[in-house]
Amino acid sequence: MARMKFYCDAERCIECNGCVTACKNEHEVPWGINRRRVVTIKDGEPGERSLSVACMHCSDAPCAAVCPVDCFYTTGDGVVLHDKEICIGCGYCFYACPFGAPQFPADGAFGTRGKMDKCTFCAGGPEEDGSPEEQRKYGRNRLAEGKLPLCAEMCATKALLAGDANVIADIYRQRVIMRGASVLGTGGLFRDRYLRMSPAADLRGASSAKE
């Protein structure tokens, strides 16, 4: 049985946010709810890297553990889904999730926390696959159509991968071998070959563009 996973290749992610809008597009997610986001670390400095994050569909999902109404379930493909009929919008899953995946709309007349919404790995919800009801609540069920999540399928640089964990691990391994670099490497090869500077040297140079 396949075990579905996301993996974002930090060497390739350029923070183009294509995954974010692909998700909005595919599921018509309203303004303010973002099932996926791209986070950039060390923005604007050497070593800057970006990663696209959404629900990671954890095996021992903290959200499921803390849910007071037990609305989460894991599909045969290892996708963590939830039932909006049961969800009470308490927000506990958001407190527990290390990736900040659960999202809550401001709902009703007073803008109270509505029912949780999160990445479904494009696998819909508990309703019948591909039913209008499912689509309305969770967005499109691509997995049922034999397709993978649109965010990964549309990734500009093929940084975001989605699918069977084993296949992804293979792709990843091939890339690492090809690059001969670590997952978060910063181009050590160039430095060794052309710059012959001490490894600690700042490639960017503080003196640049001084006047």
């Binding site: 350029i14 690059r179 181009g187 090869l189 052309y194």
Partner: peptide, 27 residues
């Protein structure tokens, strides 16, 4: 990745592209 081609970026800004370059010249 496949040719091990060095990526050189010349720009006044440390852009998103520069972040993925092997060599950055800030002019």
């Amino acid at each position: 990745e496949e040719n091990n081609a060095p990526i050189i970026v010349i720009d006044p800004r440390f852009t998103r592209t520069a972040a993925h370059a092997d060599h950055f010249l800030q002019i």
